[in-house]
Design a binder for these strands. Sequence first.
DNA 1: CATTGTGATGTAATCGGTTTCATCCACGCT
DNA 2: AGCGTGGATGAAACCGATTACATCACAATG
Lengths: 346, 346
Amino acid sequence: MSEQNRPPRIHDVAKMAGVSVATVSRAMSNPAIVSEATRKAVEDAIAATGYTLNLTARNLRQQQVGGVLALVPNLANPFFSQILAGISEVLRRRGLSLLVMDTTSVADKPALAALGPYLNRSRSDGVIVLDGSLDPNLFTRPGCPPVVQACEWIDGLDAPRVLADNVEGGRLAARHLTGLGHRHILHMTGPAPNSLTASRRQGFLQGLAEAGLPEPGPADSIPGNFETRSGVEAAPRILAMDPRPTAIFCDNDEMAIGVIHGLTMAGVAVPDDISVMGFDNIEMSGFCLPPLTTIRQYRTRLGRRAAELLLDRMQGGDDRRTVILDVELMERASTAAPPAGSANSP
Amino acid sequence: MSEQNRPPRIHDVAKMAGVSVATVSRAMSNPAIVSEATRKAVEDAIAATGYTLNLTARNLRQQQVGGVLALVPNLANPFFSQILAGISEVLRRRGLSLLVMDTTSVADKPALAALGPYLNRSRSDGVIVLDGSLDPNLFTRPGCPPVVQACEWIDGLDAPRVLADNVEGGRLAARHLTGLGHRHILHMTGPAPNSLTASRRQGFLQGLAEAGLPEPGPADSIPGNFETRSGVEAAPRILAMDPRPTAIFCDNDEMAIGVIHGLTMAGVAVPDDISVMGFDNIEMSGFCLPPLTTIRQYRTRLGRRAAELLLDRMQGGDDRRTVILDVELMERASTAAPPAGSANSP
DNA sequence: CATTGTGATGTAATCGGTTTCATCCACGCT
DNA sequence: AGCGTGGATGAAACCGATTACATCACAATG
């Protein structure tokens, strides 16, 4: 047994099949242009040798990497991983691999220095950015592969975007709460620079105006950071407000769950005393107590669309339009009419 | 301006620096062996040309891929994404990229056919398996890169494992609940073939025995699938039991949260009527209502250790030992002493 | 019959680096 | 002076595929 240690190469297949390496390559990538007999011989030789293509060699010759890079603000956050699932699905159908990079872990260094080397044609064939806090200049440097923004976006970055309809979501939230009779609604927002924060706020204000409510003042919103803890910590501050709001719209579900946690711990009942709603419809929102009224966005679909858009750009397409995906109100048990004695009653 | 369209290559740098390509390569990868003056010239030329290394070319020559593949059962599950964060962190320090593949999306086809091509030295330099349901033969085929199992494991696969101490976790759960005075405890398990299910069960039974309880019968466990919904659906069946258990130990937090949801909706109070505990300590477990008593495992650390072990194997190490990571009881508000009138009271 | 076209295949260049091996030079030692 | 040594460098092989171009046999066409 002269067991060859190294894996077989195309040359070995060619020798066994009695053809040239070029013919083997053609038989694999474009079977139509080789004769039936040759194709059969090559297939047999491949099976006999156990040959598998060396992708690195192909990629070098074809000047590509065979993979797409996803820049994720926080891999540990389920919100993003579900988008990744959608991306992954589309990429694999095209034989491309998914490279993932967590941008939080590079947050200490200047992003440009830490991320720069990765945004290069030799590292990936395309990039999907899920982190809206990155420097737009990162993506305009020479050698940067095609970019698509998903979910969040970067101001001033001229690349296609795939977004949920955050404005409409904000409007739906306002409409739902005002429809229940609420007149004094607190808005717990995401971090100020975040692109989602601004558009959800915009829709929310629009919805309030449509309901005939006066423009809310600065005291009618409270900033959070999208994390559950910030919701918990907001609760006592909310309870100290005078007048106390009868409803709270949170910019995501985690904060809403945190707020409910904090309020409940303080002995305030949701939704009987205060209504709380969220945004995103994360898995848990249907199962927490009370089940959370929220705005649903389709994260897997969002990932898929982003990947498709990127593939189009990678093939030379120049479709720069922004794709907006529908959102939907999920009415559950964390919202109700304001308590009878509340100051809101006409 | 004769703007070169193609990115600069090492040859361009060499020409500008007045040295050979070999010297440029050395100056980059092993600066100590070139003279000070040459290094300076090369650095200047690199800066002037904006040269960046073509990784594909290096990888081809060095017979490597420059990336590690993580096989994840369900990318959308936050549990796994947090492990990925740990893996990602370690890999990036070594200049390796993280490739992610969702094994659920290939579940329809036979895994061997769908996954086989990816388990190849030309696709990755190493593999971290997070999916315990895969065929062990996938990883023993020639050409498969080094493998490490993390979190779950595959029976019969002789590759290093990095696990939480599931047995100890099960024991801690039993000890906690029996310590509170519970004598009739239901175990809601994961799917039977899953490696986690067996070891948590084992520890749990051991803990019961240590507390002097009789070996539980088949009626004292109920199967789930690790998903929240299965917990919700178990609730009515639990309430129909006679005698009704005073405590429920669930094999993960999602199911526990589902059970609490189902019980609460049915008007049964947790923990006053029935205690419920989980396993994993997912983010949400501290914020749901009531906050969940659970077994904490360190997922980021688990990912890191798995990556480190894999790196060792990739460098020729042959450390096959199984690494067991500590777990810890997180005592929160979903467990309490059994109700006074319960049949358990002595 | 000479010519042209076509399909199948082989030869060799190519992708862009790394690395082996050879060369050259300066230096120290006898 | 002669020789060995070691450091710095260059020339060219090499990694394993794809693909431009050349070649060849054979059929169709004028």
